[in-house]
């Protein structure tokens, strides 16, 4: 099982290049994070993977078969996006029935249970829902649909803190029970960081980080101390960001440290969390001074 292999995807809108040579692999049974700032190309990439829009170049394969106009492959993918593709005049129960008809094996019981948990009345029409409840409805579908690969594009848009927490809990629970693959595209990293196993960071249409979260964070450091000592210690290392307060400087380093280098007593080395790493990787260098 190769999973999804995205190869050399390029996409431009008018004269703006959105994706430049994207290569990545999504293996079955993992929770992936697709992280990037607004306009980085996350939604475009997910739309291409799920055949909603076309790439200018490149291929998307699922277990060796192209996804392009392939019903069998598309039936294994589900994209929950902020765009509302459901009919406004349809009742939520009818939309569940449509999902069952076209995907098969929709988990009605679980959907009802989730609707109760989120206090969503399934007899309402989709068009009458608020932004938050539209998101909730789409999240319920994405958790109950039998697709092996579920793509969640900004899944907590418009949700309050309680609903967000409830969703993350259900996501992990669903993942453990079904073994589905989830790809979560978001810029709210702090909340989702604990759930992710693998991360793609996209910047200016290119994947700049592709690795398991533990491996990635293993190479992410915050070197703090007096400006002069920190600069000496980090010289030649991959410094992705800096923060300065008076004579104290914090340098964010992504990559291996030089084990030969002696750490001054006044300088400390700490691990970076995913959010800090993301912010520094996707900021232009020095922007945070």
């Amino acid at each position: 099982m190769d999973g999804i292999i995205v190869k050399e995807i390029k996409k431009s809108f008018n004269k703006a290049t959105i994706l430049k040579n994207i290569d990545l692999q999504i293996k079955p049974g993992k929770i992936y994070g697709l992280l990037g700032r607004n306009g980085a190309g996350k939604s475009t990439l997910l739309s291409i993977i799920t055949n909603r829009i076309f790439s200018d170049e490149g291929t998307v394969m699922l277990d060796g078969n192209t996804v392009f106009e392939n019903d069998e492959a598309l039936g294994q993918l589900y994209l929950m996006s902020e765009r509302n593709l459901y009919s406004n005049s349809s009742k939520l129960r009818q939309l569940f029935n449509t999902t069952e008809l076209l995907y098969g094996n929709f988990d009605y019981n679980y959907a009802q249970k989730l609707a109760n948990m989120f206090e969503l009345d399934l007899n309402q029409k989709f068009g009458k829902l608020s932004t938050g409840y539209r998101t909730i409805f789409k999240l319920i579908v994405s958790l109950c649909v039998p697709a092996k690969y579920v793509f969640l594009d900004e899944p907590v848009l418009g949700l309050d803190a309680n609903h967000r927490e409830l969703f993350y809990r259900e996501l992990v629970d669903n993942y453990v029970k079904t073994g589905k693959t989830f790809v979560i595209s978001t810029h709210l990293i702090e909340e989702v960081a604990n759930s992710l196993e693998h991360v793609f960071v996209i910047r200016d249409g290119q994947i700049i980080v592709d690795g398991d979260v533990d491996d990635v964070l293993e190479k992410a450091y915050l070197i703090a101390g007096p400006v002069k000592e920190v600069e000496q210690y980090t010289a030649g290392l991959n410094v992705i960001g800096q923060e300065t307060l008076g004579n104290i400087q914090g340098s964010y380093v992504f990559g291996e440290l030089d084990s030969e280098r002696i750490l001054p007593d006044t300088v400390t080395v700490e691990k970076m969390d995913l959010q800090k790493l993301f912010i520094n990787l996707t900021n232009a260098r020095g922007e945070k001074k």
Partner: peptide
């Protein structure tokens, strides 16, 4: 377009 939207949301190809 309205049919296309709901079908593409449910994993149906354009040809189908």
């Amino acid at each position: 377009y309205s049919d296309f939207k709901i079908l593409i949301q449910n994993g149906i190809s354009r040809r189908t």
